[in-house]
Design a protein around this nucleic acid. Structure first.
Lengths: 201, 201
DNA sequence: CCATAATGCAAGCAAGCACTTGCATGAATG
DNA sequence: CATTCATGCAAGTGCTTGCTTGCATTATGG
């Protein structure tokens, strides 16, 4: 059974890598199978169709994302620490799968099945974050003269562009260890200085 | 001659629209030709290949980008105003072509010609901006305790994510008029509050 | 040791793709 | 009027794509 599970996982791994770099449309089932070290027929037997692979991949991503969130972001009174931890988690997750999520978000626009496999994804994330910002505004920890959605957008832009620059544009180097990278800290500091209620630096 | 030029431009226009929404791989020469109101053969006669179309499109984009920059961003002593104008210009340009540049940046990963067509593009932009940030740091207008490259990255992240959210993720509405949109102003204010040397708000 | 399930392999199919060829048309240019 | 040049049109070529079929091979577990 374990070999059977492995086969499926290996196929998903291969699909993830290929889609992250080439996009969904340009990733062929043959290439996925080859990279997974598996016969192409096996792919179809396990996932029925290319679309099926995508769907399974989407579900696995959602599972992992949820796991990471539960593991790393402890809800805390300390807004600064919470947001910084959240930023690191987002960046780490996105870098780990080589920008796959962002790439799929792109593809969702043109390939409808990608959107279906991905679910609400980014949109839900953004409004959840905006809600958090609003709470912290009311608690007096974030400046109140900025729309919380704008704040969430700025935060999301910070993390996503960090990833895009390194995975897509090839600018800058991906940090060896996200949890200690000072570049992220500086980037976040910039955001925090602009967004926090206190003016001190 | 003018009709001849028009044909080429129409083909590039069609290619730009289609690639922006469907990506390079999923955009067929047939679709481009049809949208341009032109026979498919004409496309090949004028651009040789699908990649030729892409290359020409990249060159046209570079030309236009240079034109916009020269036209809209007057070098000024006022750092705040200069950066805000620059942000607006970037956003306007990117929204005008429906996120095409970002899409192409993604495609550049798998289609080498795209990268060549785009040229140094984003990388050059980023280091140019970092240089500007450094100057303004030395002039005492931007805080000096942040790496200018990080600052440039944050700025670029701000504008590009604004565009990405509206063109790709379909979150938020594209502003009717970029030059007066208050969302951009708030977003920029967030950045400025974090990046400026003065602590006042 | 045998049944069942998972995998491999070879071959192929229909559709869609980028791209080509040969020829007709029509408008400008000289 | 003759030439040239950009374009249209119809047909087709070879390749790749997602996906299928039929059969042989290898484990795994009762």
């Amino acid at each position: 059974m374990s070999a059977a599970v492995d086969t499926g996982e290996r196929i998903l791994d291969a699909a993830a890598e290929l889609i992250a770099t080439h996009g969904y449309a340009a990733t062929t089932t043959r290439a996925i199978a080859e990279r997974a070290g598996v016969n192409e027929v096996t792919l179809f037997r396990r996932f029925e169709s290319k679309r099926g692979v995508l769907k399974a991949l989407g579900e696995r991503m959602a599972r992992r994302q949820a796991g990471r969130a539960a593991e790393h972001v402890a809800p805390s009174e300390d807004t600064h620490a919470t947001l910084l931890a959240f930023a690191r988690m987002e960046i780490e997750g996105a870098l780990a799968d080589n920008g796959l999520a962002m790439r799929l978000a792109y593809d969702a626009r043109s390939v409808s099945e990608v959107g279906e496999a991905l679910g609400a994804g980014a949109g839900a994330n953004l409004s959840g974050l905006a809600e958090f910002m609003r709470e912290r505004q009311e608690a007096g920890q974030l400046r109140a003269d900025i729309d919380p959605r704008v704040m969430a957008e700025a935060f999301f832009g910070l993390t996503s562009s960090y990833v895009i620059m390194r995975t897509v544009l090839g600018l800058g180097e991906a940090p060896v260890d996200v949890s200690t990278d000072s570049g992220i800290e500086q980037l976040f500091d910039l955001f925090w200085s602009g967004a926090s209620a206190t003016k001190e630096r």
